[in-house]
């Protein structure tokens, strides 16, 4: 029995808030129930009652903040805002709106001195030496993501909460993540949701319209947008990934569906090239039992929970 696809919510101006490919529409009630139970289960198994996450002002971390608050209550959530000196002030303002609307604990940790301490600033070299002054935006962006990770894991100790991941399925598949940076977490509630599905869930859970509407950005440099950089729209990319990966369609089949041959080849390459980011690093097999190969236990075993 098939049910009709739900309508996309309208914004204040009467226009649809986002584009939702029909095959990607999820039952948001079920998703919220599953995710809430998942968050509670992860914390219970590890013996934690609190959670901490980095709030950027973008839709992914905003959605996760709402989901965590729904699962365990906003008072158990700590949001850390970690701007770099070139980060967009609008992003910070959007993050503050999320904090105010949830009523969760928050703090601001400026990471400029951490990043600049390594690469240097102005004419003054940092720990990386003179070469660091010429570091690319990508290097700086990756380093900043890893500094944010380091801050969150410190707060995991002081706040007594698990670090919640905020990466979505689309960016994970195409490799738009920083290894051991934004992808580092104790668990990830939205890692199996495409960007279009993140928007769908964000709209029903109450993420502010401004955050849902704005162009996704890694905010590595002013004016950067994912779609501008990559040259495709998220709904289109999400559909392609869904048919190629989830529905196992061949290149020929998705081209017959109307996807551009060159785009399909490029996205296939991106997905393959990012495989290493999605997996635990291989260990040289030497002993009788090796973690991940023939020593296979649940991440949280009975009796292992923090007490």
């Amino acid at each position: 029995m098939n049910r009709p696809v739900p309508a996309v919510p309208l914004g204040a101006d009467g226009a649809p808030l986002f584009e939702l490919p029909v095959e990607l529409a999820i039952d948001t009630d079920v998703a919220r129930r599953v995710i809430a139970a998942f968050i509670r289960g992860q914390l219970r198994q590890a013996g934690f009652e609190r959670a901490v996450l980095g709030l950027s002002g973008g839709i992914d971390s905003a959605l996760v903040a709402y989901l965590v608050a729904e699962a365990i209550g906003a008072e158990r959530l700590r949001c850390v805002l970690m701007p770099y000196r070139t980060s967009s002030p609008a992003s910070r303002a959007d993050a503050e709106v999320v904090v105010a609307s949830l009523g969760c604990v928050s703090e601001v940790v400026e990471i400029s001195s951490m990043v600049d301490g390594f690469f240097g600033s102005g004419d003054v070299p940092g720990a990386a030496g003179p070469e660091g002054l010429a570091a690319s935006a990508l290097r700086r962006g990756n380093f900043a993501a890893r500094m944010r990770m380091a801050v969150l894991y410190d707060r995991s100790v002081t706040w007594g909460g698990l670090v919640v991941g905020t990466g979505n399925k689309t960016e994970s598949l195409i490799g738009y993540t920083t290894l051991f940076g934004d992808s580092a977490c104790a668990f990830n509630p939205i890692g199996d949701l495409y960007k279009s599905q993140v928007r769908q869930l964000a709209a029903v859970i109450g993420v502010p319209e401004r955050i849902i509407r704005k162009a996704p950005s890694a905010d590595l440099w002013p004016g950067q947008t994912d779609e501008g950089e990559a040259g495709f729209s998220y709904p289109h990319l999400d559909r392609l990934l869904f048919w190629r990966i989830d529905k196992r369609r061949s290149v020929e089949e998705v081209v017959a569906m109307g996807f551009d041959t060159a785009l399909v080849a490029r996205v296939d390459r991106m997905v393959a090239a990012a495989e290493f980011k999605r997996q635990v690093p291989p260990i040289a097999k030497l002993g009788p039992r090796t973690a991940g190969i023939d020593y296979l236990y649940p991440r949280r075993r009975p009796g292992s929970a923090r007490s």
Partner: peptide, 10 residues
């Protein structure tokens, strides 16, 4: 398989 068109959303 959380597709919205499935019965019970699943």
């Amino acid at each position: 398989d959380l597709a919205a068109t499935n019965e019970g959303g699943l």
